[in-house]
């Protein structure tokens, strides 16, 4: 799934005029899109200087803040939505950040690469090597993705921690959510997109 498809998927879930906090907002593309299409207000958090500059240029509110240090500076239920795209697997404590997202926001939207995807299973199963793919383009030694999980892992975590899944979209490589991804998402889904609440 391309980044643009992912942004479209997420922005379809966000109602007009919502308040949003985007964790690891990158160059601010999602926030700019939500602002222009849905009159959404909010902030992005980011630590990369080039991304900060890109957000400044777009006129997107961005705050330099390390997600691993938590969201303690934001009051509870300050936002309608807290979004984190493709970053859950890269933080020190995904469980803690998930809790924080659901404290600061009424709902959280999370996307992550599904490590249970059949190609990844095959890569590891047949090659016996750590999977490298377009969704996971790093070698084992330099990857920022330190907490990879599968669709099944994530859902088990939600069950154990009383996190309610409102909506789920699991898509394959062709950005489609077809019969196979619906039937067996943990096998045929490459990217998982969840909307959750507590």
């Amino acid at each position: 799934m391309s980044e643009r498809d992912e942004l479209r998927l997420i922005s379809d879930w966000i109602p007009q005029g919502a308040t949003v906090l985007d964790l690891g907002c990158g160059d601010g593309a999602l926030l700019a899109r939500l602002r222009d299409e849905r009159a959404v207000t909010g902030y992005g958090l980011e630590i990369d200087q080039d991304n900060l500059a890109a957000c400044f240029e777009k006129g997107v509110n961005v705050i330099e803040q390390d997600l691993d240090k938590g969201l303690g500076n934001f009051q509870s239920e300050r936002f309608d939505y807290v979004i984190m795209t493709q970053a859950l697997q890269a933080v020190l404590r995904p469980d803690a950040i998930l809790d924080e997202m659901l404290r600061v926001g009424r709902e959280a939207i999370i996307t992550f690469p599904n490590f249970g995807y059949w190609r990844i299973r095959a890569y590891l199963g047949f090659k016996g090597r750590m999977p490298v793919s377009s969704a996971l383009p790093y070698e084992w030694y330099d990857t920022p993705n330190i907490h990879l999980c599968t669709v099944a892992d994530f859902q088990a975590h939600c069950r154990r921690n009383d996190i309610r899944i409102i909506e789920r979209t699991v898509v394959n490589r062709q950005h489609r959510s077809g019969a196979l991804t619906r039937l067996w998402p943990n096998f045929f889904g490459e990217i998982a997109v969840y909307r959750v609440t507590r």
Partner: peptide, 19 residues
């Protein structure tokens, strides 16, 4: 500086911050 930023966020104002 973060005290300033946090107050602005709480007040719902447009703010960007870099360190």
């Amino acid at each position: 500086s973060r005290e300033i930023v946090n107050a602005l966020v709480q007040a719902g104002r447009d703010v960007s911050y870099a360190e």
